[in-house]
Design a protein around this nucleic acid. Structure first.
Lengths: 247, 247
DNA sequence: GAGCCACGTTGCATCATGTGCAACGCGCAT
DNA sequence: ATGCGCGTTGCACATGATGCAACGTGGCTC
């Protein structure tokens, strides 16, 4: 579709086979040296390729970073999916998987409630950091210094009377969440919703994601939702185990 | 340098942070949706990105493949270098590291002889497959079917009276090399040179590379070179161990 | 169930951008 | 000194990438 990009990608693929010289690449792609050189320089600027002292081109460091990132993302989704489905099956409620990435908490996966009254959300959508159970779990998993930095950047839009309104309040709440091992959203985002969330940890112990149950008041009371906590926590633990987290 | 390629790479980098939608990417790059879509399709064609059922874009499978390939290449170099330096130090002779990639045997690393008469070679340079000790070790490490295919493709240029002249001869020699665990180039490439080579194996047992010693006749006789074999083989074993090969 | 909205998708006209050519510079080998 | 191989640069051309505007479509909301 896009010629130059296609050629650049073919260069990467060729380099995947082993180091190449400029002329080799030009010959293999069937294009002029000049063109290959320009593509290589662009690739080099972003560390996708690396040239050694002898003007031979190798795959660059960025690829390692990317593949690691990709692996992590995929793994969590794949490992979590069956457990989320089972939790959804057992409770009949909306189940979310969320992760903290690039300064935002976003939904990675969603299993719909059986009830006609549902929570609005979309996979990939960022959520308010101070007003959702998932976000609180994710933030509680960050190192304290980073928590503070993130808390200071939040706008603290007040969605309901219960919404957390300041960085100090949020940080105090994050401490409680870290202690308890789960978070509650008690009508802090929507007046008619209660959510509970628990952390998923990867092998290193880092909080890699969070699972949540979201239930409208008209379906279950706050107390009834809390009764689902053990099930939720057990699901999060099961996913963590699948991710290699022992304990 | 190359605009569209640069944008495509930035897309990959963004996707390294996490899955994105078309509009998100367009906003982050500051370009029109259409443009991003085209770049994405090109990336998708080569499996650099993957789009899930919900039209969200992820990093694709090719990146895993590439990073594995790159890691392998780099690892061998890094693991081997100190051992090669030590062998070079101990013997004073030219030491080469070679790998078989994309139908060619090439030099990956070189440690120069202390003597004024040296072997001509350059890192990254392909070597004749039928007339060097390294290449014979590398080919001997291939599965038999592939050996045959490679042997049939060779031109069998006769460099010296000792040069192997046919596929059958070469295959017979490869069998011997595989049995012995090392190869000898007895003036088969240059009339005045003797080389010996031994395989480096990675964890899976596959022959990942080969080390060689190259000595001009005027420096050491054929017999004297063969006396260096134990040292060479031990070096190759040491590198193999560093690569995770047990045994 | 109907309408709406968000998002991905397509065709097209424009011109910026990527392209190939030819010439240069450099290092290495003879 | 000379020649060769390889990477590099400047330049003119037109190809191919771009943005616009309009269309499809699926999912959410009412």
């Amino acid at each position: 579709m896009s010629q130059s990009v296609g050629r650049a990608l073919r260069i990467l693929i060729e380099l995947g086979e082993g180091p190449r010289s400029l002329d080799q690449l030009a010959a293999e792609l069937g294009v002029h040296k000049t063109t290959v050189l320009r593509l290589l320089r662009t690739l080099e600027d972003d560390a996708f390729v690396h040239r050694d002292a002898n003007h031979r081109f190798h795959l660059g460091a960025r690829l390692f970073a990317l593949s690691h990132a990709a692996l992590e993302q995929r793994e969590i989704l794949g490992y979590a999916a069956p457990h989320l489905a089972r939790l959804n099956q057992a409770t009949g409620q909306t189940v979310h998987l969320g992760v903290y990435e690039g300064g935002e908490a976003v939904y990675l996966d969603k299993h719909e409630s059986r009830h006609s009254i549902r929570m609005y959300s979309r996979v990939g959508l960022p959520m308010p950091l101070h007003a959702t159970a998932i976000a609180k779990v994710l933030l509680a998993g960050l190192p304290p210094a980073e928590r503070r930095a993130v808390a200071d950047r939040i706008a603290y839009t007040r969605y309901t009377p219960n919404t957390i309104g300041s960085a100090d309040e949020l940080l105090a709440e994050l401490d409680r969440v870290a202690d308890r091992g789960h978070a509650l959203d008690d009508a802090e985002h929507e007046t008619f919703m209660t959510c509970i969330a628990a952390p998923i940890r990867e092998a290193s112990g880092r909080v890699a994601a969070a699972v949540s149950l979201s239930v409208p008041d008209v379906v279950l009371s706050r107390e009834q939702v809390l009764e689902l906590l053990p099930r939720l926590v057990e699901t999060a633990r099961a996913v963590s185990r699948d991710c290699g987290h022992t304990g």
